[in-house]
Amino acid sequence: MECLGCRIVNALEPEVNIVYESQYLVCVLDIAPFNDGHMLIMPKEHYLDVEEIDETTLFEIMKVSTKMSKLLKKVFKPDGITICQNGGIFNDLTHYHMHLIPRYIGDGFSWSEPKDEFKTDKTLGEIKSILTEAIQEN
């Protein structure tokens, strides 16, 4: 198996720590956690991006993200939970995965602002029109 994510969900990588498993996915502890309990929710079937995932698996991901968020809050008592995922070339595992990260005030985790000021020649209204027109074309 060439996909790192597929090797993780099949426990073929060393030190895979599966916290939860269902028919459709596994939850594993991140090997480079931001905080204790930082985990990845990963489908057992190979997908790169969210739009490729079938509806049953998508529902399971959301259902389990709620279940794991409750677990993290019960066990680690964080100030909050950050849930995120990176797609396309930003997906370092080359396999869809959603991060659940317990967060604490002052933990140093932050949303980074762009290095340069965002510049566009479009207004928000113009961008809205572009997107809503594209939705109607589908």
Rank of each mutant, 00 (worst) to 15 (best):
W111F: 11
E52C: 15
S65K: 08
E137Q: 10
L124Y: 01
I135F: 08
R103V: 09
V50H: 09
L25S: 03
Q85D: 04
K70M: 07
G87I: 12
H38L: 13
N17M: 08
Q23M: 13
S110G: 06
L124Q: 01
H97E: 08
H97G: 06
F118Y: 14
V28M: 13
V28G: 05
D116H: 14
W111P: 01
L93H: 03
G125A: 14
S129H: 09
L12H: 00
T57I: 13
F109I: 08
I18V: 13
L12M: 08
M98D: 04
E45A: 06
V50T: 05
I135V: 12
V28N: 10
T66K: 15
N91F: 06
E52I: 14
S69K: 11
K44Y: 04
Q85P: 01
S129P: 00
M39S: 10
F109S: 02
V26T: 05
G80K: 10
V28W: 11
T66H: 10
L12T: 01
L100R: 15
E133T: 08
Q23I: 11
A11M: 05
L58D: 01
K128Y: 05
F34P: 00
T57M: 08
R103S: 02
K63S: 13
I105V: 15
T120L: 15
E51L: 12
Y96W: 12
G106E: 11
